[in-house]
Amino acid sequence: MPSPGEHGPARQRLSRRLFLRSSALTTAGAAITEAASALVGQAEAADDGASGPGPVTITMKINGVARTLRAEPRMTLAEALRGPLGLTGTKIACNRGACSACTVWLDGAPVCSCMMLAIEVGARSVMTIEGLAGGGELHAVQAAFIEHDALQCGFCTPGMVMSCAALLERTPDPTAEDVEAAIAGHLCRCGTYPHVVAATLAAAKARKA
């Protein structure tokens, strides 16, 4: 199950609840300042190092491209992707980390984008479902999902694909149990789990061939 800030530097981890306490604002500011000199990971801060409550400029690397947006610091990464950035492939279904529909990659690791703020991303690179198919060619997991009908309504599918594709990046030869563990935090009301497992195992096989 993806968790917020997984694999990120400890000082950049920031829960939504923590952030919403005003005392945490300087923590966020510090995290951002650290990355401020880089091309990406920028967010403007007031002289006292605090951001917000008004809109701030945030720059982050998404699907290999540096993108800049103006957003209030309270905006989650999922909201930023779906709103100002126009990347609506990432879905919000529960908005509190219970269903994993909003899963994206942060430096290659799956995270729930509804559970972190856009300004937390910093210098890390974000990969969304829109970026997974490189040059129009589907990722092996995406192709296998179609072939094995590992989707029905398709709403949980982008998140499910991101978690299964991440699994193959770190475990090229997974067992069915590995796939179940990788999607354990995902909810699918259509009941696609059996086909998701079959598709991901088939994708692993196809990649080796």
Partner: peptide, 14 residues
């Protein structure tokens, strides 16, 4: 299927 696995499908929330 392709639209759904690439996030291209436009749902009402989109």
């Amino acid at each position: 299927g392709r639209a759904k696995v690439t996030g291209a499908t436009r749902f009402t929330v989109d």
